[in-house]
Write a protein that binds this DNA or RNA. Structure first.
Length: 99
DNA sequence: TGTCCGCGGGTGT
DNA sequence: ACACCCGCGGACA
C-alpha cells in the first residue's frame, strides 16, 4: 500500500470516528458502524478502513468485532491480540472505578 | 458446521 | 477503467 497522499476518504473518516467513539471496554460490530455511517451493507469496507487506520493508538480497532460475536480478525486471524487488548481494557475500567 | 455469494469501497495496474 | 483485495454478513447446503 502506497497511500502516498496519506489522505483517507470521507468514508474512512466516518468509520474511524465511529470507532473512536466506542467506549472503553465496549465493543461494536462492523455492521453496527456500517449502519451508523449509512451503509449497512458495507461492513467489509468498514473492516478495511479500520485496518488502514493511521492512528491505531486512538482508534480502538480491536474493539470492533464481528456481528456474530467473534473477534473477527486483527492481524490476519490472530484474534489473540484483540482478546488481550480487550481484557486489558477491562482492567483499565476497573482502575477508573477504583479511583 | 462448512462453504459460497453478495455488498461496498480501496488500492494497484 | 478494470481487476483483485478485505479484519464481514448472511444465506444455503
Amino acid at each position: 500500500m502506497k497511500t502516498k497522499k496519506s489522505k483517507l476518504t470521507k468514508f474512512q473518516w466516518q468509520v474511524l470516528k465511529e470507532a473512536a467513539k466506542i467506549p472503553l471496554g465496549q465493543t461494536r460490530s462492523y455492521k453496527w458502524i456500517a449502519k451508523k455511517i449509512g451503509l449497512p451493507k458495507s461492513a467489509r469496507a468498514v473492516g478495511q478502513a479500520l485496518k488502514i487506520n493511521p492512528y491505531p493508538l486512538i482508534i480502538p480497532c480491536h474493539r470492533v468485532i464481528k456481528e456474530n460475536g467473534a473477534l473477527g480478525g486483527y492481524m490476519g486471524k490472530n484474534t489473540t491480540r484483540k482478546e488481550k487488548l480487550l481484557n486489558l481494557e477491562k482492567e483499565i475500567q476497573n482502575n477508573f472505578r477504583k479511583i
